[in-house]
Design a protein around this nucleic acid. Structure first.
Lengths: 199, 199
DNA sequence: TGAAGAGTTCCTCAGCTGTAGAGTTCTTTC
DNA sequence: GAAAGAACTCTACAGCTGAGGAACTCTTCA
């Protein structure tokens, strides 16, 4: 078989390439994509290298080990916590709608979607990934100054878990009724509930 | 090293044992437990055999392959769909409470809990497991005759996904505010929302 | 110009994976 | 009492895994 790391290319010359190859970024893109599709365990270093059309040893060179690669891929360029926090600013009357809209939109956009999928797919078997998921999606829960009492904390967590369950059912398990619905319809239907939990 | 399949036992005699060894059940128990902890991919046939204190080849003998073992372990002795369906019978006024209570209780009981954990932990990477999860937890969605319109189907799915998200956050990600709360408090707080969705 | 170092290739290692076959002993059936 | 089959053991295979080392080439900077 002699797969030779890159599916199509044959016998590339050894040594450094001239100019600025975007190798590091290519690896990060491939890694995020594969982590999103297969989870931490399912995405092998070799498969990531193959998708990036790169020698597996380069991954080790740039990111020491797989764990660091994962952390870098999901954490490096994300503004998810900031966007969630930002949705809390504004009139309390429409907070439920803003929060639901922001939260669910993160699962639709091509930049943030693979990050969330990677976190979720990995979180079920890796406690480390579960914690990262929580820190990413639940950060506004710690940040929110209004949530000082146990009951308020719990209500916030209920709101977040509702939205999370919705996203999970829609994008991971792919529940037909939820896949069929469009974003705005879902936001509209969920917003009142979130509003109730949060206020 | 020479692990020799069973951690402590040394050189057991070959051939069939006399009497009725509960080997098959021991394997199923060990399998369900490991699938619940590590997911489908994370639970190796050898590890399951070791936990059951049994030769790995016996798994192949009883259950052809790993997939069949998984299906048998999660599907063989569960009454989850029935219990969920049963919660739909009774006064419509308290449907939300009954459904939430039944649903969340399934995650607490030692008989059903590992089944759900195994399904969830496996569903994120295996489409097959995701479908089984959906058939298990969403069966009442298909069954319910009242849900003929798209909107009603979606509302049912929203209710289910809310409860699922809550259970996931509580038992898999282990969100502190949700772990701290006790079952009845959660049911009480969630029931009105479920009731709204369902009616 | 020369040395340091970053980017790149190939090869190797020990360990684990699911599956498979062949042989031994007990139980059941005729 | 003999034959069939179920329960059980050990050993093997081919493939994949993450990690690591050695060597080569280009770039950068003194």
């Amino acid at each position: 078989m002699t797969d030779n790391h890159a599916s199509h290319g044959r016998k590339r010359p050894t040594g450094r390439r001239t100019g600025d190859s975007g190798t590091r970024d290519a690896i990060l893109d491939a890694a995020l994509g594969l982590f999103a599709e297969a989870g931490y365990d399912g995405a092998s270093v070799r498969a990531i290298a193959a998708r990036a059309d790169v020698d597996p040893a380069l991954i080790r060179h740039f990111f020491r080990d797989k764990d660091t690669l994962f952390a870098t891929a999901v954490a490096d360029r994300t503004t998810i916590p900031q966007r969630l926090a930002a949705s809390f600013e504004g009139s309390p009357d429409t907070l439920g709608h803003r929060f639901a809209d922001t939260y669910l939109r993160l699962w639709e956009e091509p930049e943030t979607r693979p990050i969330l999928l990677a976190l979720v797919r990995s979180s079920t078997t890796s406690a480390h990934a579960a914690q990262m998921l929580w820190e990413t999606l639940g950060s506004q829960l710690n940040a929110s100054e209004s949530a000082t009492h146990d009951d308020q904390m719990r209500r916030l967590a209920l709101a977040a878990s509702h939205l999370f369950g919705l996203a999970f059912a829609r994008h991971v398990v792919r529940l037909p009724p939820l896949v069929a619905a469009d974003h705005d319809t879902l936001v509209e239907q969920v917003a009142p509930v979130i509003q109730t939990y949060l206020t």
